[in-house]
């Protein structure tokens, strides 16, 4: 069994992904392509080179002896797409302008990391969260088992657009599912984020039948998720599956730098005002039997 994970980041004192003080592991690889994704580095399931020109010393005209000499010319010419993973991994870029998104984590190292914060998890009712990317695309079971065997609360933040077997296998080791809900019309869903809604619904149905602890997380993006039609679908969805914990948040543009670092294009989104968030939260609470929490970053 392959017991390493491909990660992009580990965030300690993570307080947004489940109860208490948590450590969130961001896994690499996702089947969706949400235009508003704030972690574009987690989309591909392969390691990727990133380059931030404005942090690069050479680009600023400062000599840098750490870089691969073959790159200097291209960096000066701003031809930034021919970095190789194996070369870049050997460069300790002084300003972290050039590097790789994606590194492997073994179970043994994982255990060392969570042991450090064990007391904080237990005292705050917190634990570990696997996020991403789509955590259900990698073999997280050994990791979940390790956490559970230490008595640590486990959570997964998933889009649920994965084969149902992937979900079924992990269910017994997961205390909390933080499930994204994005676009609830079949056509739009396929068109905009590239997901088959029926897969999603089948998965959520499974979780709800098994009475799993679910938090539904709804990102508000004008023109995509924050439309009249989608809101109505959302309300029906909450009612149908008797979902009680809803979290909403405005799309933010904090991921921009990462798009730039990957050489990907990024569309700027309108941030939803506190007022609108407030109104939507009241509306959903009125229409359904759920509690709505507004997440603030």
């Amino acid at each position: 069994m392959n017991s390493t994970l491909l990660l992009t980041d580990i965030q300690r004192f993570s307080v947004y992904d489940g109860p208490g003080i948590r450590t969130t592991f961001f896994l690499k690889g996702c089947l969706l392509q949400c235009p508003w994704c704030s972690n574009p580095e987690t989309q591909s399931c392969e390691p990727e080179v990133f380059f931030l020109a404005d942090k690069c010393l050479i680009n600023k005209g400062i000599n840098c002896s750490f870089c691969n000499p073959n790159y200097l010319h291209n960096i000066r010419l701003k031809v930034l797409n021919n970095f190789s993973i194996s070369d870049v991994s050997k460069i300790p870029c002084p300003t972290k302008a050039l590097g790789i998104y994606g590194y492997e984590l073994k179970v043994s190292d994982f255990i060392k990391i969570i042991k450090k914060d064990y007391d904080y998890f237990i005292n705050s009712g917190g634990g570990i969260t696997f996020s991403g990317g789509e955590p259900l695309l990698q073999n997280i079971i050994p990791f979940l088992k390790a956490g559970k065997s230490m008595g640590i609360h486990t959570a997964i933040e998933s889009s649920l657009f994965v084969p149902i077997d992937n979900l079924r296998k992990v269910m017994e080791f997961v205390d909390l599912f933080i499930v994204d809900v994005k676009i609830l019309s079949y056509d739009e869903c396929k068109k905009i984020i590239g997901g088959d809604l029926s897969v999603y619904l089948e998965n959520i149905d499974l979780l709800s039948r098994q009475r799993k602890n679910i938090i539904v997380r709804f990102p508000l993006v004008k023109g995509y998720t924050f439309t009249k039609e989608n809101l109505q679908l959302l309300i029906n969805f909450i009612k149908d599956y008797k979902l009680s914990q809803i979290e909403i948040f405005s799309v933010h543009n904090l991921g921009q730098t990462k798009y730039r670092a990957l050489g990907k294009k990024y569309q700027i989104f309108d941030v939803i005002s506190d007022n609108e968030l407030e109104m939507l939260s009241k509306l959903v609470e009125k229409e359904t039997n759920s509690q709505v929490k507004i997440l603030k970053h």
Binding site: V15, G20, N123, G126
Partner: peptide, 21 residues
């Protein structure tokens, strides 16, 4: 300050555990 306000209980836990350790 906003971060502290929104995560009041977690900060109390953070501090308490820090001192326990």
């Amino acid at each position: 300050s906003g971060f502290l306000r929104r995560n009041f209980n977690n900060f109390i836990c953070l501090f308490k555990t820090f001192f326990l350790k």
